[in-house]
Design a protein around this nucleic acid. Sequence first.
DNA 1: CTGAAAGCGCTAACAA
DNA 2: TTGTTAGCGCTTTCAG
Lengths: 336, 336
Amino acid sequence: MKPTIYDVAKEAGVSIATVSMVINNTGRISTKTRKKVLKVMDELKYYPSAAASTLTGKSTRTLGLLMPNIANPFYSELARSMEDRADELGYSVIVCSTDYKEEREQKYISLFLRKQVDGFIITSGFNSVDLIKELVDQQIPIILVAYNISKFSLDTVSVDDYTGGYQATAYLAELGHQRIAVITETVQSSVERVRGYRNALQDYQLAYDDELCLETSATVANGAKVTEEFLDLKEPPTAIFAFNDILAIGAMEAVRKRGLSIPEDISIIGFDDTPLASYSNPPLTTMAQPLEDIGYQAIDLIVAEIEGAKRTSQRIMLPAKLVVRKSTGGPLKKTR
Amino acid sequence: MKPTIYDVAKEAGVSIATVSMVINNTGRISTKTRKKVLKVMDELKYYPSAAASTLTGKSTRTLGLLMPNIANPFYSELARSMEDRADELGYSVIVCSTDYKEEREQKYISLFLRKQVDGFIITSGFNSVDLIKELVDQQIPIILVAYNISKFSLDTVSVDDYTGGYQATAYLAELGHQRIAVITETVQSSVERVRGYRNALQDYQLAYDDELCLETSATVANGAKVTEEFLDLKEPPTAIFAFNDILAIGAMEAVRKRGLSIPEDISIIGFDDTPLASYSNPPLTTMAQPLEDIGYQAIDLIVAEIEGAKRTSQRIMLPAKLVVRKSTGGPLKKTR
DNA sequence: CTGAAAGCGCTAACAA
DNA sequence: TTGTTAGCGCTTTCAG
């Protein structure tokens, strides 16, 4: 049988209260007693039951993290950074993949509730907004990551998509590009990025052209397909801004297939800075998501909420960062 | 205050035993009572406390998964498949990244123990073998994934590295390559793969050449560096078998830098089939790790052990699968 | 500085 | 078919 606090107490010749105190570093215990107890705990391989201590009202110091798919690098890196920060703060994180299914969301929320996590971290790709509402109503600490629900005001940490869209476009414009296309996605973040794109265009006195703004979903094939459409235009773009690296890789493929070279003929910029970006050929210039920062901030925020019981509902936006590699350059000059 | 089983019982006008029974689907409860109780539970947003039920001896139906780094695609895909299978079997998985640090391994093992996980899943990259021994001694269900410790006999699920190494080499030999180089890694799995490589060489009557077998660690730069060494040989290889995709990407880079083309001049084959492989240029032929199968089998095995309390110590080996893409072909004929 | 004892929320006999 | 009750292992006053 697993040793309990009683076994330790008996073995050490003290009461269970004393043992409990040395475990939790509470009360005042003589160094001698403490040492003895610690020794016995070690000998018996005693591990205090988290269940029992939870039952007495202690917090579990556990955070529940819900993401659509931990196998997606975007989420897994986020998860990793959260784990690290949580670890530093003495918390642990339970991650579950909801697979974009409400049924699973439901199930895991319930699981977390039963396990009495101290707080919920919910990322983009979570569908059951009603469930979130229920948690909010129950005053359970929640933080939204890379996910905006304007419906209620919650702590939120996300990337500044507007500025990201603006900066990528501005960078291309600075390089001298006049016709800059974007491949957008059917997701929340896209609309902000498009807004940034259009404002940058304006600021650089470039005309916005509907033909240069196409929407698709994130696969290499789609990126290639859309790019071909761009290339077929009478006046094709000299630069393409893809809203994620996958699409950018697709764009590269299409460009290469035409016998055009990157960045000489066409510049391509992605978004996310997944590992893909540095391994592509040529290495992809892209807007890096500050995943690590996002994770850290998210944990800090929710821990603050848990411990301080504060309800400020901050909305933190972290800037994407331009990572210049080899897929972008100035447009080909006629004079060359 | 959070509702307890008492609140539900009172509200439904029954005893807590009845409520407990409907929660667990035990005993015989009239449909009417059951419905009533369920309704109240829903109204009160009652979630049974996992802590309390654990305390009474019920299993937690939770599995502890320890991997070095959840941000690494290899591990995150593994994690995902385990999660899925566990979910199907009514278990949940807690994942923690140990970051290859014994200190963290220690910490998370202890965490899992305190949370009373029903079983441990431990993957390659785990250093504290002594800790594993302790668990084994305590008769705690454990399964090793992609990780062999010959020291004790434990349930193990891993990829068949020997056959993988053999098949990749054989494939290249079939294509007509005579000089096949390998880039190995400083990890456990490499030695089996090398063994497969050498045996395949033998079976195809090809000579083994020390110069064509170089070891390095997994970075693109290293892959490129080693490849350059190969290319500098008086008699360079016509095919390179890299023991992971990252190295293969590096090899591709080096080959391209020499103005050689793939696969016309040099064939390249990787191992793992990470997303990288399909996005590279040309798409990489590689040996796919059957991650999904591994995950499933691992969960099935450990759940069997937990529920059946059996102690058979199976060692399951799953075959890697050749995925032919565009980076391999026959060697250039002189006559062309 | 240490011990005794009252719960925490739930399960599982045992009664009714 | 349902209720009563004794713990499960631990924390936390309150005494000593």
